[in-house]
Amino acid sequence: MSLTTMILKMSEGLGKTCAIFFLTLLFSLPLGMIVALLRMSRNKIISSVTRFFINILRGTPLMLQLLAVTYGPYYLFGISVSRNKLIPVVIAFAINYAAYFAEIYRGGIESIPAGQYEAAEVLGYSKTQTFLRIILPQVVKRIMPSVTNEVVTLVKDTSLAFTVSYQEMFTIGKQIANSQTSFVPFVVAGVFYYLFNLIVDRVMGLIEKRLNYYK
């Protein structure tokens, strides 16, 4: 198999890798905010239950969570395993990443000094207004580096979808490596991930620059 065919074949899987990546971000970024707010809730029960779930999601391997979401419903309730593996894969990824994003958001929100809340109150801002207009814009700026970290990790984590037989780029790379008894597909995969992350890095850098409007 020529290098060109190899790259073309793996590019087919790259579409599926991108699907996992973008859909996971689409769902986990907002979901993370909801989880963060629940985690910071004044209601002890809500916050401790949320904390418990965050701990489980961060404390167990994503690979296990993928297996649980994909095959769990079948083993527990006899529900058929989804034929479109993208659904369970994205559910597992989105929930897992939401847990990490939630903690990043929480760190950002709690880093805003209490004085700002007091000042906003004096100026007659409602609680929602304070959060949306004063706190959130600052939080977004502060958490960008940590979010970039997670997004970069996500690119590489997409290869875990292999454990539930989702035919993404790395899986196809492994198939080629096997049939050709060759190491080259792994190098190609490495280059693909690196280039993908290079783009992610540039885009995130651009966003950070845009947000840097006070400097």
């Binding site: 095959y71 989804s82 037989s165 035919q167």
Partner: peptide, 17 residues
């Protein structure tokens, strides 16, 4: 569909995937 073990192949079959 390629799976990483034959047991997973059979799980897919059992679960109608």
């Amino acid at each position: 569909i390629t799976a990483d073990s034959f047991l997973k192949c059979f799980t897919e079959l059992a679960g109608n995937a």
